[in-house]
Write a protein that binds this DNA or RNA. Structure first.
Lengths: 340, 340
DNA sequence: TTTGATAATCTAAACGTTTAGATTAGTTTT
DNA sequence: AAAACTAATCTAAACGTTTAGATTATCAAA
């Protein structure tokens, strides 16, 4: 594999000249020399070594990405993360950056953080870091160029991009309220996800504003991946005065509620309204199709990546966090409360 | 950000000694010195610069990945690619490799190939390169360490990993035949995907073996993303002697056939059997649930990545291509042919 | 011509590591 | 006490670039 030295020899000039020619440098170069160098480079199939370049330029034209969930490879099969990733890839491509996945599972800041300092990426996108881990603090203290997604990080002076969880939860709740529901439950996501308490509190507040109290046991903590909510929904729906509507922490949870209701012979939406959050691709494929709050996931990924790029370019400029409003998508899983 | 020189100064030894300590080198180091260095490194929060290391070691512990489809960011929202990617990520994590996405869209070998020679990745995974592009040949001629997925590349001496398309198509066809179907159509994927002619030919051969000829106009070329097949299926189903069964090139196409049939009032599977290929996550969510051939996509991604790692470790050893048999998953979209 | 200015090219240091080989320190052996 | 090892550490080159500053070539003006 040929190096700049080979090109220099082949064209009979110094490596400095080769470099200026190939980088369209500011210094003047004789047209004939320029041509000779370019031909030699082409003939030798030369391409600069990214590490050597990165070493001196201190730029790799590469964005890093790290998913702060337990098992990072699984992230791809998660429709939420997958959509975010696509947005990030789009923006990376548009800005001529490659994208590097950091795959090492996080142990603790002490052991895991340092690896992110190896400068292989010019900046890092941190996605959905659990609040009970030291990922965020560990990475922030490294002095990396950082942008987070779905991970509040203003306390560290790091801008983050996320959907407006509070607004979304309020819209969801008010949608159910406007349909005449009063016994409304909430099955939330993982306790250690930052969005969970925000959505929960906004739900409670919206209920309070409507003069309602949330019934006993009608707020339950589940998992965003839907792994625990089927059983919890089942128990809730078996109770004598079960809720007439449920605000699910996300679509995956909402879908398991649909399953549980069907298995219990409870008709959705006639006997039970269900509203989700996210609008993942499969939300419109369920039966009944899911009413939900759409997060513009592609846009979130894209804007976060662009924000990161601009931080890389001008590290001193302060960048504001971005909060994107969700949009209510009414499908078939919610309707007017039955009079009882 | 501290360098090895800082650590050397801080601990009062040469950088060579720091290096041997931190890399657990073969040379002996006094226990006390070792400790002093380790403490200094910890105190300074030192982590080696990946580019400097990569430059001399000629290893970045990074795998590259490139999707040879038109618009590479879209790849993530594609359930096929997404599952492959997950497998790759798993294997990369298991072998302590990071994964770098090459995001630059492919123009032509002349312009695009060289960028892959910059050594930022130790090897490259090439996925689903179209047969009518010069991606495969362009990358092969670069002398990279390469493994392909769903892209036959033995002609270049490059091992590839793929499902056994021929076997899958045969099983699909024989499944329909065994249900008594004789008028069977095939809506294939993109003309420039390597798997398409393989599946088509295997289909035709299986029909021939059963003593049947494929009816006129009953083989149509569509797109793997399902973007063109709805209309084609519709036209086909409107014909007087329409097929009683369709072997779809993949699940996305099969799902549009389901849509077209429903819209025409044709009942699946009573009036029309449909079988897909891939078993993407949504295949079981359609109504009726899709009978299909399952590709173990995670396994394919994983094995390809492991194969790449072993090629990186021993470049001279010859590695065989891997062909993984698909598995027939019978759900609700196929049944016995109605007697007519 | 010589001088000065400018254009073209080159030399050498720097980026932050690893590692072969040299040097020095420490311990046996004679 | 010198010789011969071995252990511990260091020096310096190498990896493949970029770039500031030095040098040389070219040419117009004096």
């Amino acid at each position: 594999m040929s190096t700049i030295t080979d090109v220099a020899k082949e064209s009979g000039v110094s490596i400095a000249t080769v470099s200026t020619v190939l980088n369209n440098g500011t210094k003047p170069v004789r047209a004939e020399t320029r041509l000779r160098v370019q031909n030699a480079a082409r003939r030798l199939n030369y391409h600069p070594n990214a590490m050597a370049q990165g070493l001196v330029r201190r730029r790799m034209n590469t964005l890093g990405i790290f998913f702060g969930v337990v098992d990072s490879p699984v992230v791809v099969s998660n429709p939420y993360a997958s959509a975010i990733l696509q947005g990030v890839l789009t923006a990376a491509a548009d800005t001529s950056n490659n994208l590097t996945f950091f795959t090492a599972p996080w142990r603790c800041a002490e052991q895991s953080a340092a690896a992110f300092r190896d400068r292989r990426a010019d900046g890092l996108l941190l996605i959905a870091a659990p609040t009970d881990s030291d990922i965020l603090s560990g990475l922030c203290s490294l002095g990396l160029t950082l942008v987070t997604i779905a991970t509040p990080s203003e306390q560290f002076g790091i801008p983050s991009v996320d959907v407006d969880n509070e607004l979304g939860a309020r819209i969801a709740t008010e949608h159910l309220l406007s349909l005449g529901h009063t016994r409304i439950a909430h099955l939330s996501g993982d306790a250690n996800m930052a969005s969970v308490p925000v959505r929960r509190d906004a739900f409670v507040r919206a209920m309070k504003n409507a003069g309602l109290v949330v019934p006993e046991n009608c707020i339950q903590i589940c998992r965003y991946d839907g792994s625990s909510s089927y059983e919890i929904a089942r128990q809730m729906l078996l109770k004598p005065n079960r809720p007439t509507a449920i605000f699910a922490g996300n679509d995956a949870i909402a879908m398991t509620i649909l399953d549980a209701a069907r298995d219990l012979g409870i008709s959705v939406p006639r006997d039970l309204s269900v509203i989700g959050f996210d609008d993942i691709v499969t939300a419109s494929m369920t039966n009944p199709a899911l009413t939900t709050l759409r997060q513009p996931l592609l846009e979130i990924g894209e804007r976060a990546a662009l924000l990161l790029v601009s931080r890389i370019q001008s590290p001193e400029a302060h960048q504001d966090s971005i909060m994107i409003p969700p949009e209510l998508v009414i499908r078939e899983s919610t309707c007017t409360a039955a009079h009882s």
